[in-house]
């Protein structure tokens, strides 16, 4: 049943590792954000700790937008989007394949950019930082589960990037805001009892977005 999803995932990752187009562009874009913010604002460490979580997620989601746009732009090339519509498979399987490829590429990018972020903003690493892993996972999955289906909608239009932004931001904002809050708690070392319920809430949104997208993807592929 997962054969199609795995085939699409393998194909996307192979193409990405060969060209490194998305991950390089995302990495350079984030690096620029960190450099500009670091050298523009002379702020104390205390203030930096307050803005760092937001800054980190600004880098993640803006770079993630590039990854999402790329994901279906390469399907549009040579009519592959139509080839997908012709495939004798459940559209949900295509969604799962595309979702995992975008998510893996974004998580890899996050793993590569986070050490740079730590160096630039002189963050103290501690064991408590491991709590960032579920936060980044949940926030990223929420962003990509919704972003994957909306990217498939937007790719049919002429102004793909603008439409994707317009559709995605209002819907994904709660997840990003909660992820920033959770990241702030971890980076400041002040993990309160609100941490886990908020993390569960992000996870619940992930499940809802993923399930709805899986069910609706067949309709997206039609003309």
């Amino acid at each position: 049943m997962m054969r199609t999803a795995i085939s699409i995932l393998k194909k996307d990752l192979r193409m990405e590792f060969r060209s490194k187009e998305s991950i390089l562009a995302m990495w350079i874009f984030s690096l620029l954000i960190f450099v500009i913010f670091n050298f523009t604002f002379e702020v104390s460490r205390l203030v930096m700790l307050e803005i760092a979580p937001g800054l980190l997620w600004v880098a993640f989601v803006f770079s993630g937008m590039f990854g999402l746009n790329q994901s279906f732009a390469l399907e549009k090339e040579n009519g592959n989007l139509r080839a997908m519509a012709l495939m004798p498979v459940d559209g949900g399987q295509i969604y799962v394949g595309k979702f995992f490829s975008v998510t893996i590429i974004m998580l890899m990018f996050e793993a590569l950019i986070f050490p740079i972020f730590v160096i630039f903003y002189d963050l103290q690493l501690s064991l408590g930082m491991f709590r960032l892993i579920p936060v980044l996972l949940a926030g990223t999955i929420g962003f990509t589960s919704l972003g994957t289906i909306l990217s498939a909608v937007a790719v049919h239009t002429r102004n793909q990037q603008i439409l994707l932004s317009l559709l995605l931001w209002p819907l994904v904002s709660p997840i990003i805001i909660w992820s920033v809050t959770l990241t702030g708690m971890v980076l400041s070392g002040e993990v309160t009892e609100a941490f886990y319920p908020l993390l569960v809430r992000v996870g619940a949104f992930d499940v809802i977005f993923f399930t709805l997208s899986y069910m609706l993807f067949d309709f997206i592929l039609e003309d």
């Binding site: 054969r3 085939s7 194909k11 193409m15 060969r18 040579n78 009519g79 592959n80 012709l86 004798p88």
Partner: peptide, 26 residues
């Protein structure tokens, strides 16, 4: 379907393209 659209990925080899479609079409 054969049309002016290729339904192929330029960044994959011929064999990778065909293996991909052979898995999709079982």
């Amino acid at each position: 379907v054969i049309s002016h659209e290729m339904f192929l990925y330029g960044n994959l080899t011929a064999i990778e393209n065909l293996e991909y479609y052979s898995r999709i079409y079982n």
